[in-house]
């Protein structure tokens, strides 16, 4: 058993296990400890674009060139990146690996005011036909490898949704 949320060290290990070469990330409140862990990792290159559409397009270029990038993104950024996701993932069937922070999830569980980003997140992923799994605790860390396999086998984007901030 593990504590609430996901440990940054566990998530980093999961990213290493799938041979991640680059992580495209913009800092947010939920990913900050994972972001810091990636920043310190000697093998994974952290790239910090200005907006999430850039992240998706850079990841598509990296994958086309033979690398194994992961896009670490908040659901709000997923919404911003819609055209890039369409053009660089869904349309050309590029197997983007997406780790999506579910802003609003804690509020929906009664701990904080509900964020308007919350209710659109799953419907949006379903609209793109992007398969996703929930990463809510360390017990779920296997979903990262599952996302990787799904993306590879389907040659299509796949995602994990994490519902709270990574623990240090």
């Amino acid at each position: 058993m593990s504590g609430p949320g996901v440990s940054a060290a566990g998530a980093l290990a999961a990213l290493r296990d799938i041979a991640t070469t680059h992580v495209l990330a913009i800092p947010d409140s939920e990913n900050r400890h994972l972001y810091a862990a990636i920043e310190e990792d000697p093998d994974i290159v952290l790239i910090t674009p200005c907006r999430e559409g850039e992240s998706v397009a850079i990841a598509a270029g990296l994958w086309t060139g033979g690398r194994r990038p992961v896009v670490l993104i908040q659901n709000t950024g997923l919404m911003e990146a819609g055209d890039a996701l369409r053009g660089c993932g869904v349309g050309p069937r590029i197997p983007l690996r997406l780790m999506v922070g579910w802003r609003g999830y804690p509020g929906a569980r009664g701990r904080l005011p509900i964020d308007s980003a919350y209710p659109f997140t799953e419907p949006l992923l379903r609209a793109w036909n992007i398969p996703y799994s929930l990463l809510m605790s360390d017990d779920d860390l296997g979903t990262v490898a599952q996302m990787d396999r799904t993306a590879e086998e389907s040659s299509y984007p796949a995602a994990v949704l994490f519902g709270s901030a990574f623990r240090p």
Binding site: E54, V56, A57, I58, G61, P69, A84, R86, G87, C88
Partner: peptide, 13 residues
Amino acid sequence: FGMGHASDFGLGL
């Protein structure tokens, strides 16, 4: 492939 993102894709490549 995505409006405005050709140089981002190129950067990744």
